[in-house]
Design a protein around this nucleic acid. Sequence first.
DNA 1: TTTCTGACA
DNA 2: TGTCAGAA
Length: 115
Amino acid sequence: MTSAEKDLYPIGTVEKKTGLSARQIRYYESMGLVNPVRTNGGQRRYTENDVLRLIRIKQMRDSGFDLKSIKEKIQVFEQKLEEISLPSVNPAQVKLSSLYPVSNRAVLMKLLEKK
DNA sequence: TTTCTGACA
DNA sequence: TGTCAGAA
């Protein structure tokens, strides 16, 4: 199986997949909660990971968290991703299994499709 | 037709 | 957040 994770969705599809309105999706982006890429025409294109991230945001929102808390949560998450991505870090020094329930870094990176 | 930005209720 | 306008 080749690379089966290059799908990009327009905001309309994301609305259906997440249950959020385009208004909310764009607003969350302005708050730094998601970073979709843009087409030449300026339209937003979301990856599967952006969709999953938006679903998590929606769940947290429904759980009573304000956007500020959610934003902080995401920033901490991104920060941890950087840590485990640093080639200078020895796997033995990072208790990956205690941070995320994945068997290895490749799986995690694929799940989050980060550089 | 769909999406974009800005703006107003 | 919803929704309208005007443009792409």
